[in-house]
Write a protein that binds this DNA or RNA. Structure first.
Lengths: 294, 294
DNA sequence: CGTCATTACGGAATGCGTAATGATA
DNA sequence: TATCATTACGCATTCCGTAATGACG
């Protein structure tokens, strides 16, 4: 195989059509340049330059090889630049997972901020429940997640984005909407309830159970996504405990009422990522957003 | 500047993710390979591989540099070949891609014409679906393609070779062959269908869907090549919509029946090429064949 | 005889392979 | 202790620069 020096030498001679000037341009003397070209021609297996001792000319093979050589050199010069850009986090891909609920609150502004900070980074978005996000972060399919506790703080690092209170989602026409005060467990002890799945949405489940005495006999559905819950409430299948940001989902026929117990027990949304950061774009983002990294 | 040896070394390690096996593949020992990579990384100015003493992994910079490295190697290997061909008097190579269907209609006469015009040019033929052809034309692996729309007219220039109607391929013994008139959708509404792949053969798929009301429940196979379709028809797996030139495939046990809707919706075959013409043989061919070039 | 490419020759640098080292599970 | 990447060292090769040669107007 030929070398890049040989290519550069050939390009210089092809452009100057003069070994002396070409050598000067390359900061070397004629003899090695001459040998480079000979060697290159031998490797190629064809004459690239026709030279009697008075003048130098390109052969037709040389003309087309010149184009290829230029393309090779251009590619070879560009490749390290892009590699460096990616290593420094200035370009590349960032794969971000988010929960449906977070999509309606924090995601928009945050994406805007990200694309302001790192305009050359492509962002790949996926809607995933917390557990899928943790999985993706573990396997490296995801760089960053917007999810809720619990998660293993040994493998994941995180940054608290916000806390919000839990509210009660009820159908618009429901009598409870007329109460005009914070609700207590007493107020809906006989109402059908749509609960979180204790396995798929453990965070919400545990929190609600801790917050209020739940009549499990009243539970008519067990689901894992906030959006599904609110849709079921709109369909008058029951009441549901949802984070305040669910009000942003914009589903008709549902109202959200404050809970007395919800003032203290708040749910958290975290940005989280694998401590083993492999994507420089992520490292840069965390630094620029000033998310804690200990 | 880095060397091709370093690139080859990096590619081998990136593919094996193991210095020992990579070195074996390159017929060398580990230590120089290790040094090559270190040196390459130093030249690039970025880490390409992350390695603790137990495993080797690509960094994100390494991943994209791997692609560039492969492209460089491919280009470097091809360049001398074309130069040699030109030098040996055969004034060049034309690499032509064609679809299986076009192979049985236009390809033969066209090749004859080409070799009449430019007997000194070697012709390199490859059967490829349209998408692969576009790809090849982009990377420069192909000079000319015979393919069907759609393609980006900013990067590609083209010349319409012919239009033809769509016909229905049916097994020879099929009752529909006795009808003796143009068929309508009604005639085969309960027949099993072999359809084009909506991704691999989008042009045909879209056209058929536009042309006829398709019962998607009747679709028993989804394939990307006309030849495969006709073979499946011969095997009595169903009926298929194919361009008229498929009659030239000469497959036994298949008949081709006219479609009423096919008289209007016609499929096109184009000769197309990258506007950035680098192969002089292609330029000459296009001029001599009087294909429009604006 | 002046110009310019090529060959001759000596020294420096590069890069391989073998052997030794270091780190990790 | 076994595995696997890295460093240490000696030797062959490569490639530069200077000097000499050759070819052509």
């Amino acid at each position: 195989m030929f070398t890049f020096d040989q290519l550069a030498g050939f390009i210089a001679v092809a452009e100057e059509l003069h070994f002396g000037r070409a050598a000067e341009r390359l900061n070397m003397t004629q003899p090695p340049l001459s040998r480079q070209i000979q060697k290159l021609e031998k490797i190629i297996g064809a004459e690239l330059l026709e030279r009697d001792n008075r003048r130098v000319e390109l052969t037709s093979a040389g003309e087309t090889f010149l184009e290829e050589a230029r393309r090779l050199m251009a590619l070879a010069e560009r490749a390290p630049v892009t590699a460096r850009r990616i290593a420094s986090g200035r370009s590349g891909v960032l794969r971000i997972g988010f929960t449906a609920a977070s999509g309606f609150s924090i995601l928009g502004p945050l994406l805007e901020e990200i694309s302001g900070i790192m305009p050359d980074v492509d962002i790949d978005l996926q809607e995933l429940v917390t557990r899928e996000q943790l999985n993706g972060l573990l396997t490296g399919e995801l760089d960053l997640g917007f999810a809720r506790p619990p998660f293993d703080s040994e493998t994941f690092d995180s940054h608290l984005l916000y806390r919000e209170s839990m509210v009660l989602a009820v159908p618009s026409s429901h009598p409870l909407t007329l109460l005009g005060r914070d609700l207590t467990a007493e107020d809906f002890k006989d109402e059908p309830l749509i609960m979180h799945s204790p396995t798929q949405a453990r965070y919400f489940y545990d929190l609600v159970v801790r917050m209020l005495p739940i009549q499990h006999a009243n539970v008519v559905h067990t689901v894992s996504q906030i959006l599904t819950m609110v849709s079921l409430v709109a369909a008058k299948r029951g009441l549901a405990f949802v984070p305040h940001s669910a009000t942003l989902l914009g589903i008709k026929g549902v109202e959200f009422l404050p809970l007395e117990a919800g003032r203290e027990e708040q749910v958290e949304l975290h940005a989280l990522w694998n401590r083993r950061i492999t994507n420089p774009a992520l490292a840069r983002l965390l630094r620029d957003l000033e998310f804690a990294m200990e």
